[in-house]
């Protein structure tokens, strides 16, 4: 059963249509990436899923039905606008937020110290929240999101303000949660994190769905037959069957002529006596796909194709 089912939701604020006919599904044991440029409708979509906003059209089912009060304890949410009570100690703040997720005092006392330890915040627990750095507050907010062991975890830009060590910590935690069968929905701009973590993504812009599907499937969909090679030898100016040769930072990108496969090119290179240090199929990065799709959509020719893909 899918944990989150979003069907044709739309939402306007005055004359601005923030979300138009967005549909997707997220399953347990899956990290789902909600991607899009700034102001694309990501946060509005999340708020509709969490019943903070009621959609103008469409519907959302979460954990098998509409959102209700009892499900609030099963959801962990890290909002884009981070918020902690600034004037109380870190411990009091986290205890309070945990009680609001239905945890008893005993459960909190049993779990909170371990989380504080894991996020290296134990020594700051008696400090006022406002005295903590932005990164520490971010970690504290993640504890508030996870401490009640939610079934559904929705995190909006979970890596902002984190250093590489803590970014890795959060990534590991998200992977652990996925392994434990939790449903995770993540909104972020950091495509490298999406590439490393997400099983499935949706890309929205101006409220429209531009791209939706499994990450592997999307890579395949946008794959070209270009090659990336690394060699210590200089390449000849022209190679048979190669339309274009581009020097990248450490690699050389070869674009084959129509009808030529990567395998044909490898044979050509070997026959030319070129010693290869590296040889790989040039899969476009998610960043490239993102830019390609968003720019295509803004030029007016991407949307139709993508809608078609979504229907398929």
């Amino acid at each position: 059963m899918q944990s989150i089912v979003v069907e044709h939701i739309s939402k306007s604020f005055g004359d601005v249509q923030a979300v138009k006919d967005v549909s997707f599904e997220v399953a347990p044991g899956e990290i789902f990436g909600l991607l899009g440029p700034n102001g694309s409708g990501k946060t509005t979509s999340i708020r509709i899923i969490l019943d903070i906003y009621e959609p103008d059209g469409g519907q959302v089912a979460i954990l098998g039905g509409p959102m209700d009060e009892s499900k609030k304890n099963l959801i962990g949410y890290l909002p884009e606008e981070r918020g902690l009570y600034q004037d109380v100690t870190l411990e009091v703040c986290l205890q309070y937020l945990a009680t609001l997720k239905g945890m008893s005092r005993e459960e909190i006392d049993a779990k909170l110290p371990a989380y504080l330890e894991q996020f290296e915040l134990s020594e700051y627990r008696k400090k006022k929240v406002k005295e903590l750095s932005k990164g520490m507050q971010q970690k504290a907010q993640l504890i508030a999101t996870l401490i009640h062991d939610p079934q559904v975890i929705i995190v909006d830009e979970p890596f902002s303000s984190l250093d590489p060590v803590n970014t890795q910590l959060v990534k590991d935690i998200l992977k652990e949660q996925r392994a434990a069968g939790k449903t995770i929905m993540m909104s972020t701009h950091q495509m490298n994190q999406v590439e490393q973590l997400c099983d499935k993504i949706i890309l929205i812009d101006h409220g429209n769905v531009l791209l939706y599907g499994g990450l592997q499937e999307i890579y395949e969909r946008f794959a070209t037959n270009q090659l990336l090679i690394n060699t210590s030898q200089p390449l000849p100016e022209a190679l048979p069957g190669v339309a274009r040769i581009e020097q990248l930072n450490t690699m050389i990108k070869l674009t084959p002529e129509p009808g030529i496969t990567p395998h044909d090119l490898l044979v050509t290179l070997v026959n030319q006596g070129i010693a290869l240090n590296a040889f790989e199929i040039a899969t476009p990065s998610l960043d490239e796909i993102f830019i390609q799709v968003v720019q295509g959509s803004n030029n007016g020719n991407g949307k139709k194709e993508i809608q078609h893909e979504q229907d398929a």
Binding site: R47, L50, I52, E69, K72, N73, I75, Y77, P79, E81, R82, G83, L84, Y85, Q86, L97, L100, K101, A144
Partner: peptide
Amino acid sequence: ENRTMEIMVTSVS
């Protein structure tokens, strides 16, 4: 001011 409202309304009615 603390931006806690979103956390609150997703925890309490």
